[in-house]
Design a protein around this nucleic acid. Structure first.
Lengths: 186, 186
DNA sequence: TGGGTCATGTAACCTGTTACATGATTAG
DNA sequence: CTAATCATGTAACAGGTTACATGACCCA
């Protein structure tokens, strides 16, 4: 459900090709959503069939033609309908393949598990660092240079803040876990 | 990938029907994984085709026949292979439909967003409470009454600990977000 | 008499991933 | 010469969700 509405949302900022949308997803929103080109083209097709988008083809010299999408009135309505349903509870989901392994780890190799947790700490640290840089970019206006985005920034920063909280929680948990596992090994 | 291996893992503790496996998933492992019966029956079928499981049918008076699954040597090998690949980094995923909405929320209703965040805090608090009770159950041996599970407990508690860390992070983030949103409203 | 539990599933659909295909331009 | 970038997609598969179907028993 979310990817489609994310596409509608991004097209609210301006017309774009599928290629550009993929870039946006995997650069700006990347830390909480990513998408394959294949999926984006498929959804773009479906959204156009439903009348939420329309497209025109632009010829380019020396490059393949580009199909530029723009959002319709119906698309904007659908986007706003989705946006204003702030029932987060039903989306609470702690599903995690890592915990699935942890659950059964009595039967696993404790040394390997500890190394896995150490790498997990590293990955989360990189992520935390990347988000601090992104926050800086937003403040510096290097991400969104136009005043048009001024009011968006608070929400973008709240997204990043959550990433910071979660990755810190992950790091603390992994550190505590490693300690506990080293104790029982002795 | 994880559900199948979770099924193999649970069947390592003893033979079970699809129905019982569904219950296990949605009661014990529920806070970090849930599964529909339809999905479990399908995967059980696939696992049997691959030779990781075998099943026998038990006739019951007054009830439909039950198909009891047990894990094979191949199934145990596959499970252990999966378990000992502790490369958590590749599974790092902060994907979240809530953040997708947050990202675009300049265009949304701030009042509704705040109410959504308040409910989110409630849901996370219930979750946190439920996990404290589960932890107590594990300590009390009411969950797993047999000594057989004694060495598993440490890992189960680490799973719960992560849930506690994450839900606390969610609560703190939501509280901070509400404050910030109320400030900009003024 | 109605709802919940035990027990089995099927069907359709949606979402996401991986791999492949084409073909030109540009930068190192 | 090679890799990356621009730009378009298709195909197959894996995983997850929702709805439906059957039928008997048990409890209030």
């Amino acid at each position: 459900m979310s990817l489609k509405h994310g596409l509608l949302g991004l097209l609210g900022y301006g017309d774009m090709t599928g290629y550009e949308l993929t870039k946006y997803f995997n650069e700006s929103l990347n830390f909480f959503w990513s998408a394959q080109t294949s999926q984006i083209y498929r959804d773009l097709n479906n959204l156009e069939k439903k009348g939420f988008l329309k497209s025109k083809i632009e010829h380019q010299e020396g490059k393949p033609d580009k199909r530029i999408y723009s959002i319709t009135k119906e698309g904007k309505d659908e986007f706003l309908k989705w946006l204003n349903d702030y029932d987060f509870g039903k989306e609470l989901d702690y599903r995690d393949p890592m915990l699935m392994k942890m659950f059964f780890s009595k039967q696993g190799d404790t040394e390997k598990l500890i190394r896995g947790l150490e790498d997990f700490i590293k990955d989360n640290s990189y992520f935390l660092e990347a988000m601090k840089i992104t926050k800086q970019h937003i403040n510096d206006n290097s991400y969104a240079e136009h005043e048009q985005y001024e009011d968006d920034k608070i929400y973008w920063k709240l997204c990043i803040l959550r990433g910071e909280y979660l990755s810190k929680a992950n790091i603390e948990w992994a550190e505590e876990s490693i300690q506990l596992l080293k104790e029982i090994k002795r």
